[in-house]
Design a protein around this nucleic acid. Structure first.
Length: 188
DNA sequence: GGCACGATTGCT
DNA sequence: GCAATCGTGCCT
């Protein structure tokens, strides 16, 4: 799903006093979180709490959480009920009605005005959803380790951060080949 | 009730 | 390099 979402358009419909505004961004960076095995996931070891409950719910819903007491992060729940997997949306390329930066999970939520009140929102509804654009620009697939999960040991090394290398709106470049974070463990 | 800390960002 | 800022998870 993290791969499939790249290149699709995320649509956010905001109701305003003067009528609805449709914000659109092309998804250019995602990360996969495959709990309960994945120790980098909030649902690691099957941890099921009020916060992570949405991850255990049906797919096609938003999982939104507050990080560092400051920013919100938007995820799509991707697996069947009771299988706590999700895809973090990390960066958008502005297509329509987007003001402010959209490169980075916290910035993206700020620009789309998404917060905890949107947790568990149905992504098949009319407020937040994805569409496949016509004449879709091809995705130049890149992969690297996920950001900010150093604590997850071997799981932190998995190349589950996916992005479109042709986009200038990714949150940060992939680590250079040969750098510590991209080097493969080789048996000696 | 206490306390350590985070799937980030911005400023020094 | 590090502070901001607070909900969450886990312990007592």
């Amino acid at each position: 799903m993290a791969r499939e979402l790249l290149g699709l358009h995320l649509v956010r419909v905001r109701r305003t006093p003067t009528g609805p505004i449709e914000q659109v961004g092309r998804i250019v960076e995602t990360e996969a979180y495959l709990g309960p095995d994945d120790l980098a996931a909030h649902s690691a070891r099957g941890r099921r709490t009020p916060r992570t409950e949405t991850m255990f719910g049906p797919p096609g819903h938003a999982y939104v959480y507050l990080i560092y007491g400051v920013h919100h992060c938007l995820n799509f729940v991707t697996a069947e009920r009771d299988v706590p997997q999700a895809v973090l949306i990390r960066a958008l390329e502005p297509i329509a009605n987007l003001v402010g930066r959209t490169s980075g999970p916290g910035l993206l939520c700020k620009s789309l005005d998404i917060d905890r009140s949107h947790d568990a929102l149905d992504l098949l509804g009319d407020e937040l959803f994805v569409v496949r654009p016509t004449g879709q620009r091809p995705v130049e697939l890149g992969a690297g380790p996920r950001i900010g999960v150093e604590y997850a040991g071997a799981w932190a090394k998995k190349p589950w951060r996916l992005l479109d290398q042709s986009s200038t709106f990714i949150s940060r470049p992939l680590p250079k080949a040969g750098s510590r974070s991209s080097r493969r463990r080789v048996r000696g």
